[in-house]
Design a protein around this nucleic acid. Structure first.
Length: 207
DNA sequence: GCGACGATGGGCT
DNA sequence: GCCCATCGTCGCA
């Protein structure tokens, strides 16, 4: 049996594509009340890299909303969109360079009852198979923007799990980019793994 | 299973 | 005013 440890900051201080890829199969953990954990295996990520990336919120410079992306790696960047949804990113690379990984999907493994109470979902999978869904399931909103995932007492962090085999990873264009020009619209900066193919001993399926 | 579409409000030009 | 790094529902297969 493995004894998972939280990712240290050094693991986020790498090129964003590497971090986005490496986060697949890792465990996202949210400490809830009464010592209860809400957690899931990360199944889908996207990279947003610098102000040259015209899909990245950093494209129009630093503002109040996106300031977290310029901060140190290993912090949360949480933003609000479509009038009702929150999205969770993890900041990457060097402080001063705006980049982050969007978490787009988890396979829930702990605290499933609480997640069902947090959002009306028809299945376990549907609790976390979307960037706004996982935020709702884990109760992530504006108050988590800028939070450090690498502190010893962090209430939100990544727990280290065995790396997912390269052969299980698929890539493709990032989702939901409508007005974004090429090459940014189609560049394959989205990473996915089928949780059913992650070995059970790593907590991938079915938990 | 899949495509279309409306909801809804903050951020930016 | 317009634009969203989305989601749930509805219609149709």
């Amino acid at each position: 049996m493995i004894n998972p440890k939280p990712w240290p900051r050094s693991r986020f201080e790498h090129p964003t594509l590497q971090v986005a890829r490496a986060l697949l199969g890792q465990r996202l953990v949210r400490r809830h009340s009464h010592g209860q954990r809400l957690a899931g295996i990360i199944t889908e990520t996207e990279a947003y890299i610098g102000s040259d990336d015209l899909a990245c919120h950093a494209r129009s410079g630093q503002t109040m909303r996106n300031a977290s992306m310029w901060g140190p790696a290993g912090h949360a960047y949480v933003f609000f969109t479509y009038g009702m949804h929150w999205m969770l990113n993890i900041v990457t690379e060097a402080e001063g360079f705006p980049a982050a990984v969007l978490l787009r999907g988890i396979w829930p493994t702990e605290g499933i009852q609480i997640m069902h109470a947090n959002r009306d979902a028809p299945s376990r999978r549907a609790l976390g198979d979307g960037p706004a869904k996982l935020c709702q399931a884990l109760e992530i909103d504006r108050q988590w923007d800028g939070v450090d995932l690498c502190r010893k007492d962090a209430q939100l962090f990544i727990e280290s799990m065995p790396a997912v085999d390269e052969i299980l990873v698929t890539t493709g264009p990032r989702v939901g980019l409508t007005q974004v020009p090429e090459p940014w619209k189609s560049i394959p900066w989205r990473f996915r793994v089928d949780p059913r193919k992650i070995p059970a001993e790593t907590g991938g399926f079915p938990g």
